[in-house]
Design a protein around this nucleic acid. Structure first.
Lengths: 391, 391
DNA sequence: GACCTTGATTCACGACCTGGAAGAAGCCCA
DNA sequence: TGGGCTTCTTCCAGGTCGTGAATCAAGGTC
């Protein structure tokens, strides 16, 4: 039973949240439009908006004429009310970015990282954070929070397990909090890229979405009913290690026949080389080379890849019944740019007719650099949820 | 933006719901315990409970002594405040059951059905409903609602598509509503069995669960964060048609290599017969026969089945990260009773270590007759959600 | 039978949203 | 130029709600 009481204060907080969220997500709105959208009374809208303006969260932004009457005053979330930071922890670099509330980038700090130990990562994130804060002239107490995207499983928004980095139960949130007063929120990198696509990219307007990421490996972010689905212990979305060829190729996770072993760039190139194809050593260049090679072997490998990927998509379509699947990741984009139509057709061969007809399959719009952007939305989500209340 | 305003009335409804739900789900409770669990003030609990008692939803049920003070008065939902009905629409029969609010069966009506056309089904459901209501001496206006479980996709709680029955966009809710004043709610049969297991069976206490049903075919019910997950258009949970052997056996859905083609009883027996095994014609008898045959061939087929099923489970574990998987369906139970431990081990070979360690795999506890019970919980859910307000 | 402990109820209070009336701000037209 | 009109916004009285402190209730203890 997770039910909670409601008090008279919750009501106001909730209504502030409704109004603030509407203003933020649906662009400049007048009080009048807010009364329609929220079905709150005009009196309450005026009251709540007045409070939000007095606190500086919301500001008036011009007016628009109405049909012969008093013009409506437009309201927007004040972009400079507070700032938010996002960090992307990769295997070879740490990127920190600072945004205003309109999610304009104010500063960016990229730092190469030699060995991704927890201490090293903490050091670089904190350095990057203070670098972007300083260089943009924002006072630290103006920063609402720092969202950090890591490539592993983040439990309870605090502890990280990342097999690829060799991290086991690393209390990253605590470690970071010791070096700054800015509130920290952690999440998984794939989820954050998905979050970015949901807010600013190909996921806009949808509420049941799978963001499928195909790079060297394969992962996904699940969005159910408008919010990220993490499962019982935050590791949901491990789509890449779904068995798709029972007893098939050995995957680096140890199991046989995982999707990743067939459609991850590494697996694809491996299959090509084993079949006698030759490409360069650099993975991305090689992958492009394979896609653009005009040989029967290359065509077979690519067609097979599309087939396996389609089966993986179909499994999502059947099991999750999303309204949209967003394909991303560098390899996914390269493949999708060339073969999206074929992919769509192939999915239809594996999926049930009904959910297949209801899903649209599209490409990511933001590229791979949106991870920090997604992470930076975490403090914004909190701000909107709390109706503009700050620490 | 699905955010909605909150008014002062919502607050009371919400708190009534919190109290009523606590009393219903956590057994007889005193007002004192309610203040602790709901974190409402003692004053409000007293006030709200008084109202619920006055309306007859809740009643006092004895008292329990406290440590030297005034004894606590226990409260429970009055079992006979209202009644709920559940119907199971199968391919060969329609079952309707009537329950009190404590979910004790008061009456049951089974009706064989020759051809499951919509009109025929509506007729039998309505006949069954009036039969159980009459025979138990309950006044029709005392019946809170009828939940109907059908074996197809139910959209918007109103329209049914059932490929197996040949139904296409049948407005079943409307058709039923024309024959009775009792409110109708529709849902999918697998979901309803899952719902029954969640409330009264192997799912109790968990909030992220997959109920996996293996019979002649294969399906599942997904429970995410305590409530049933239906996806964008109500067809989520189609686990049986997940591709598990790329390019493998032809499934009755038309695709190749679906899980159902390997672990559904029909598929299993088919594989056995094709490999030279002989069993009787009746599916269930044949399946038991296969399981209990002491031959190398039979053992291989069974082992393979466990392997395929394990891969199917592992895909759920990786993608959904449930805390529990509940195996049911007649074939699933027969298999599970004999080989659950092996199955658990095999799942570990396909799933990622971390989510695998976090999931428990157990058998259904209620048998296959719980569908109507699950359906009958639909009106109860509505009652609890609305805080005891009746039509 | 006085006192203690614990559970339940009462009541004044402040916070909240609402509907209707009033005010504000622009446009139109004589 | 000013009155009238339309539309947006604010003000105010009224009613609902949960809270905290005080009070009442019901049993046990000595």
């Amino acid at each position: 039973m997770e039910v909670r009481r409601t008090t008279v204060r919750d009501m106001r907080r909730s209504n502030r949240s409704v109004i603030l969220t509407s203003i933020y997500r649906e662009g400049p709105l007048s009080r009048q439009e807010l009364t329609v959208r929220t079905s709150l009374s005009a009196a309450s809208v005026s009251n709540l908006v007045g409070e939000l303006i007095a606190e500086g969260v919301v500001e008036e932004a011009g007016s628009v004429e109405s049909e012969g009457g008093r013009p409506r005053v437009l309201l927007r979330v004040a972009p400079t009310f507070r700032y938010v930071a996002g960090a992307e922890v990769g295997e070879t670099r740490v990127r920190v970015e600072l945004f205003d509330l309109a999610m304009n980038v104010l500063a960016r700090a990229d730092q190469p990282i030699s060995s991704p130990t927890p201490d090293e990562v903490v050091k670089h994130v904190l350095e990057g954070l203070s670098a972007v804060v300083t260089s943009s002239g924002v006072r630290p107490e103006q920063v609402l929070g720092l969202g950090v995207a890591v490539s592993g499983v983040v439990e309870d928004n605090a502890v990280v397990d990342a097999q690829t980095l060799g991290w086991n139960a690393v209390p990253l949130a605590k470690m970071l909090a010791e070096g700054t007063d800015i509130p920290i929120q952690l999440d998984n990198g794939a989820n954050m890229l998905g979050q970015a696509e949901m807010w600013f990219g190909a996921g806009r307007g949808a509420s049941d979405v799978v963001v499928a990421l195909v790079g060297s490996g394969v992962g996904s972010a699940l969005v159910a009913g408008g919010s990220s689905y993490r499962g019982a212990r935050s590791s949901a979305g491990e789509w890449g290690h779904m068995t798709i060829v029972y007893g098939g190729r050995r995957c680096r996770c140890g199991a046989l026949g995982c999707l990743e072993a067939y459609v991850g760039a590494e697996g694809v190139l491996d299959r090509y080389r084993q079949a006698g194809g030759t490409v360069g050593a650099d993975e991305e260049t090689a992958f492009v080379e394979l896609l653009d090679t005009d040989s029967e072997l290359a065509a077979t490998i690519v067609d097979d890849t599309i087939g396996y990927l389609a089966a993986g998509f179909a499994n999502l379509v059947n099991l999750v019944n999303p309204e949209r699947i967003v394909l991303g990741g560098w390899a996914g984009l390269l493949l999708g740019e060339r073969h999206l139509d074929t992919l769509r057709v192939e999915v239809g061969k594996h999926a049930l007719r009904r959910p297949y007809e209801q899903v649209s399959i599209v490409l990511c719009e933001l590229g791979r650099d949106a991870v920090a952007l997604g992470a930076a939305t975490l403090p914004v989500v909190r701000l909107l949820r709390d109706g503009g209340a700050v620490r």
